[in-house]
Amino acid sequence: MQAYVYKSIRKPDTYVFLAARDDFERVPESVRLPLGTLQFVMELAVTPERKLARSDAQVVRTNLAARGYHLQMPPTMSDPMTSDWGTDG
């Protein structure tokens, strides 16, 4: 399955995968507007065995088939002060 990947200019580390190139009409306006301008990054084949940096290939394939797009958000950062550092006696 081919995917066309676009990055958000307004939201760092946020990407939209489309099933058809430049088919932004598939992305709901409530999702599309906060992202601002989307810049084309690459075209890639999303196969079941393909390793993606921040998304599961099967989830991407399912979303592309069902909705025509997949939204990849930036990773969440956990608060380092909430972790047990093992320093308490």
Rank of each mutant, 00 (worst) to 15 (best):
E25W: 07
Y6Q: 04
K51H: 11
R50F: 00
V41W: 01
Q58T: 15
G86K: 07
V41K: 04
D79F: 07
R32A: 15
S83T: 12
R21C: 07
E43W: 00
G86W: 00
V46C: 14
L18K: 07
T14I: 00
R21S: 09
A53R: 12
R67G: 00
I9F: 05
V46Y: 02
R61L: 15
D79M: 02
E43A: 08
G68P: 12
L64P: 13
T82Y: 02
P12E: 01
D22F: 13
A65I: 08
V60E: 03
A3G: 07
I9A: 15
L71T: 01
S78P: 00
N63T: 04
I9M: 13
M42E: 15
D23Q: 08
Q72H: 02
V31H: 04
P12K: 03
S55R: 14
S55C: 14
P75E: 06
M73N: 07
Y6D: 08
V46T: 03
G68L: 06
T76N: 01
A66G: 08
A65C: 04
M81I: 02
M81H: 10
S78L: 06
G86R: 03
D56T: 13
R50Q: 04
P74G: 00
Y15F: 15
Y6I: 13
A57Y: 00
D13M: 11
K51N: 13
R61W: 02
L71H: 03
P80A: 02
S8R: 04
S8L: 10
D79Q: 06
G36D: 08
R10G: 01
P28M: 03
P28T: 10
R61S: 13
L33A: 15
A57M: 02
Q39W: 00
K11T: 08
W85H: 12
M1D: 06
G86Q: 01
V46A: 07
R32K: 14
A45L: 10
S55W: 05
P48L: 11
L64I: 01
E43R: 12
R26T: 15
A19Y: 04
V60W: 00
V31I: 14
T14Q: 01
K11Y: 09
G36Y: 08
M81C: 05
V27I: 14
R21W: 05
V46E: 00
R26Q: 15
G68Y: 08
P12H: 08
S78M: 03
T37S: 14
V46W: 00
R54K: 09
S78Q: 05
G36L: 03
P48V: 12
P80R: 02
G89S: 12
I9R: 14
F17Q: 07
T37A: 15
A20V: 12
L71P: 07
G68F: 06
P48G: 13
N63V: 05
T14D: 09
K7L: 10
V27K: 00
R67M: 02
M42T: 13
